[in-house]
Each structure stands twice: as C-alpha cells, then as structure tokens.
C-alpha cells in the first residue's frame, strides 16, 4: 500500500507455529458444504464462489430433515417456511455443525429468529462472491471455539463434582478410622490404584456405601 509507507522497518509477528496457515483454511479446501436454497441467481453465485474456493457443494430445496453424509457446514435460506414451521432436526442451537442462515431482511425480527434458531453466521441476499470466505471462516472459527469451550466446560463441571465427592469421602473415612484427611486421601488413592480405577470412582463407591451403612446413631 503505497499510501501508508511505514517509516520504520518492522519485524513480522513471530511465527508461533510451524504452519503459517490457519488449519481452518487448510480444512476448508475440500469441505463438504450443504446448501438449502431454491435454484436461482443467488444460489448460482453462492455455488460458483464456493467452487472457486475449492469446496464441495450439495444444493437442495426444500431442506431435508437429514443432512447429507459428510456435511461440514450448512448454508440455508432462512424463511418462515423453511425454518420455524418445519422443525428441521439439524436446525438447533446445539448443532455441532456450523450453520449459516441466508436472510432477506436485516431487521430485529429476522435477526432474532436467526440467532434463536442457532445460526452461527449469516449472509444477506442478494448474495455476492465478496465476503463469503470471511463469513465462512468466521463462522467455522467461532463454532469450533464454542465446541472447545463446551467440552472444557463439561470437563470442569465433572472435575468440580468429583472434587466434592472426594472431599466428602475423605471426611467420612477420616471420621470412621480416626485418621487425618491427608491419610484418608492416601487410603483412597491406594485403593484406586489397587482396583485400577480413578480416585473419583472409589470416592463415589464409598459414598454410596455410606448411604447403606448410615444409622441413626452416627454423628452428624
């Protein structure tokens, strides 16, 4: 850009990975994209640009309840008929496959519908070549991040629950045997190693037994 000549030389961003291209782009090259859109100029523009990028496409209308096998991204016309009424199983906010809605109106009603239905990205008609790659990349990127975060969230919830169970089992064991909490943990861990299960599993088993053993004479 001749209009912004930097006065000082600058070093490029340090390459954080061996690969300089986003994995997303590499993947996109042969991605299978399902298009639910009536046959018209918009669909033609969309398919042509996707082919230029190198994607595989399947174009269908009306939308089918089942996605074609190997679908990695869905671009669908979001109109009342296609979405709300028909209850398409794949059209859900829980979708692991990125969904891009094609809209005619950028008004609050339409946008609210689109977000509520679970669109990860949106395109506005008339469709054009420009901007499609950006929308796809951003949609896939955010959908992937969402997936990663959901998984991580689930793992953390499980961990949290396990931690609670372990400390309860520890307290119970310490009380029953008259040992310290640290020693109780050691016992749990040894048992887990012996039985080749996790400490959480031993703790859970112990707590369940506790329910059976509990008698009115027990403290607390």
């Amino acid at each position: 850009m001749a209009d912004t000549p930097a006065t000082a030389q600058r070093a490029a961003k340090p390459a954080s990975s061996q690969r300089s291209t986003l994995e997303l782009f590499r993947h996109l090259r042969h991605a299978c994209i399902t298009i639910f859109h009536p046959e018209d100029q918009n669909r033609e523009v969309l398919i042509q640009q996707l082919h230029r990028i190198g994607c595989q496409t399947v174009a269908l209308w009306p939308p089918t309840p089942q996605l074609p096998a190997d679908t990695e991204l869905v671009i669908f016309l979001l109109d009342a008929e296609a979405s709300a009424k028909k209850k398409l199983p794949w059209l859900t906010p829980d979708s692991a496959i990125p969904l891009i809605g094609v809209l005619d109106y950028e008004n609050p009603t339409t946008l609210e519908t689109a977000t509520a239905l679970g669109c990860h990205g949106m395109l506005v008609r008339p469709l054009q070549a420009k901007g499609l790659l950006s929308t796809i990349i951003l949609t896939m990127h955010h959908c992937q991040q969402l997936k990663t975060l959901r998984k991580r969230n689930q793992r953390l919830e499980e961990k949290l629950q396990a931690a609670g169970e372990i400390s309860a089992a520890q307290a119970m064991l310490a009380h029953a045997r008259g040992i310290s909490a640290t020693e109780a943990y050691k016992v749990l861990r040894e048992q887990a190693m012996l039985k080749r299960v996790t400490v959480e599993d031993i703790a859970r088993a112990l707590l369940q037994t506790d329910g059976l053993l509990a008698n009115p004479a027990k403290h607390r």
């Binding site: 001749a2 000549p5 930097a6 006065t7 030389q9 600058r10 070093a11 490029a12 390459a15 061996q18 690969r19 300089s20 291209t21």
Partner: peptide, 22 residues
C-alpha cells in the same frame, strides 16, 4: 512459508518488511 515448511528441514529464518520508499 507453507511451501517451504512442507519440505524436510524447511525453515523460515526471518520475515522482514521495508517501506515501498526504502
């Protein structure tokens, strides 16, 4: 970079930029 890094031993030693008016 993508081409180079696919080659065994491929390495980018530096990436520097100068103004058009350098």
């Amino acid at each position: 970079s993508d081409f180079i890094l696919e080659v065994p031993g491929g390495k980018k030693l530096a990436e520097r930029y100068v103004p058009l008016t350098a």
